[in-house]
Simulated scan of single mutants.
Amino acid sequence: MTDEANTIRPLLSATNIRALAGELDVRPTKTLGQNFVIDGNTIRRIVAAAKVSADEVVLEVGPGLGSLTLGLLDAAARVVAIEIDPKLAERLPKTIEEFRPELAGNIDVILSDAMKVTELPHAPTALVANLPYNVAVPVVLHLFEHFPSLRHGLVMVQDEVADRLVAGPGSRTYGVPSVKSAWYAKMRKAGVIGTNVFWPAPKINSGLVGFERHDAPETTATRKQVFAVIDAAFAQRRKTLRAALSGWAGGAVAAEAALVRAGIDPQARGEKLGIDEFARIAEAHEANLAENGA
């Protein structure tokens, strides 16, 4: 589908969204983080920024009433949509039939919590989603872990969450989401979306985060071992790494030994380190344990 064709195809309007919600007796809830996009131009902007190609399988989490789903179907070969709300999951294929009858066979709707999904009927190559604010980071990390076929994508999240995902070492917003996402991909800020394109309108702006997958750091440590170091370092981020990692390592002496072996100053703080350095710490600690017969 060409960009020109995509821009002129009808997408769900505010009237359509409210009519569908009324039909289903759906009232958007904060619990599920439901904020439906009611502006077609915003959908086109998201799809364009996601750089989805015509041969791709796109994974969408939380399709809701189908605003973004229609735009993705126009751009991709197939959409696999994971929806936790039974009413919305049941209605979505019917909405596709009404608005894109010729594309109705190009979608799979999975009724499930995205955090519990580890298999899909088609291997997704891209992730494009308007993610619920309260679970955005865990969902992204879970999908990265279980679907290595995901090569790129774009997610819309709370703007401050977007800043955390893309932050680099030394930034005030740098933390666990920043480092763990860097294990899997290069994250970039791709824009800000105002509140007036949603129903109901959230109180704060949303941020677009694009990503390109890359290989995990070269290390003999496992992802689980590296992530344990990250969690420990940021649980007490104001402390030096020697102190912050003492509980994880089995004491301050063991923590310092791992840091020294990894070539990292024990007096440094975790907020200054990148993913490769955390991997070195985990690797060094495992090496020390092996040498000491632990």
Rank of each mutant, 00 (worst) to 15 (best):
M1K: 03
E4A: 14
N6A: 15
T7M: 05
T7H: 03
P10N: 07
L11T: 10
A14R: 14
I17M: 11
L20K: 03
G22S: 06
L24F: 01
R27N: 09
T31E: 13
Q34G: 10
F36L: 12
I38S: 00
G40H: 01
I43R: 00
V47L: 05
V47N: 10
K51S: 14
K51F: 00
V52E: 11
V52N: 11
V58L: 04
E60M: 04
V61L: 10
L65T: 09
G66N: 00
T69L: 15
L70N: 00
L70A: 01
L70I: 00
R78D: 01
V80F: 02
V80R: 00
A81V: 08
I84H: 09
P86D: 12
K87H: 11
L88R: 11
L88F: 06
R91I: 05
T95S: 01
F99P: 00
L103M: 09
G105T: 07
G105Y: 00
S112W: 00
M115L: 15
K116L: 07
K116D: 04
K116V: 08
L120R: 00
P121Q: 06
T125P: 05
A126N: 06
A126P: 10
A126V: 15
N130Q: 02
L131M: 11
P132N: 10
V135R: 10
E145V: 12
S149V: 09
L154W: 05
V161Q: 02
V161F: 05
L165S: 06
L165Y: 02
V166M: 12
V166L: 09
G170L: 02
S171M: 04
Y174G: 12
G175V: 12
P177H: 03
P177T: 14
P177C: 06
S178M: 05
S178I: 08
V179Y: 03
V179L: 02
K180R: 15
A182K: 09
W183L: 14
K186Y: 05
M187D: 09
K189H: 15
G191W: 04
G194Y: 00
P200W: 02
P200F: 12
K203I: 09
S206W: 05
L208Y: 13
L208D: 06
V209D: 04
V209H: 15
V209I: 15
H214R: 13
D215V: 13
T219I: 08
T219R: 11
T219G: 07
T219Y: 07
T220P: 06
F227I: 05
I230C: 08
D231I: 08
A232T: 10
A232E: 08
Q236K: 10
T240G: 08
T240H: 03
L241E: 04
A243D: 05
A244Q: 10
G250P: 08
G251K: 07
G251R: 00
V260I: 15
R261W: 04
A262V: 08
I264R: 04
D265A: 13
A268N: 11
R269G: 06
K272N: 10
L273S: 04
G274A: 10
I275A: 07
D276T: 12
A284W: 01
A284N: 05
A287G: 08
A287T: 12
A290I: 06
E291M: 13
E291F: 00
N292G: 02
